[in-house]
Nucleic acid binder design. Structure first.
Lengths: 119, 119
DNA sequence: CTTGACTCTGACATCGACGTCAAGGTTTAG
DNA sequence: CTAAACCTTGACGTCGATGTCAGAGTCAAG
């Protein structure tokens, strides 16, 4: 599919999709004309990016964490051509990102303490 | 105390303190000269603002939250029910992101399991 | 071929949370 | 009194994630 369809299907603007690509968050093949071409798997890929952005991670943080965000298949993404050591380092970055978010969540929980009835 | 001392004691720049006041997050009395005057209670007040900013809230959100926040030895307790909704939604977005990253980490662990024991 | 929908790459605009600097008034120490 | 240190209000700069617009190329249908 081309960028317009991906934009419609993800609810993300074309501008944002090009920006993600420019920041290294998203890949695309190109027609000879230069038109970007996407596959089905790019739809959930965009969703993942949006979730992380919505949680307050910057594109710079996401670009470190994302190369190893893979689908249920357990297959390596082209972003992870390397060895176990690289994967372990990526895992560490993911741990850090989770830690930051958990700290943020803890702050919110403190505010909500005694006020929230159910989760 | 004047703005310089408050800045030193909170670790927040004078510029930021004036900005907080401009946004309605912080109050100050004024000398005839126009100099801002702060009291002891402004130190934890600034700390509260910083905590909320660090949790990903905007000044616009904070200005709504602050009147409902009761300072209790660093504990933040919302007293206005409609706020809880917004905070819960914010918490939910963070939960989603943590979920994404945990799924990623689990997948990563699966990949690593075949090659080397995950730490 | 022409039209209209779609896409491309710049490049400037916006918004939030400040940084930084300018030009000037105030306070305090000597 | 004077100088240093402190304060004031603008106003412009920055950075990240977009919006928006311009000028131009591409593609499918009639």
């Amino acid at each position: 599919m081309r960028i317009g369809e991906l934009a419609r299907r993800t609810g993300v603007s074309e501008r944002a999709l090009r920006y993600y690509e420019q920041q290294g968050l998203l890949t695309s093949e190109r027609r000879p004309s230069g038109y970007r071409l996407y596959r089905e798997e790019h739809v959930p890929a965009v969703r993942r990016i949006r979730v992380l952005l919505a949680a307050g991670l910057s594109t710079a943080q996401i670009v470190e964490v994302l190369p190893c965000v893979v689908d249920d298949e357990g297959l390596l993404t082209p972003g992870c051509p390397e060895l176990v050591d690289g994967l372990v380092r990526h895992r560490h970055r993911i741990d850090e990102a989770i830690g930051e978010l958990e700290a943020t969540r803890a702050t919110l929980d403190t505010m909500l303490a005694g006020r929230r009835r159910a989760d």
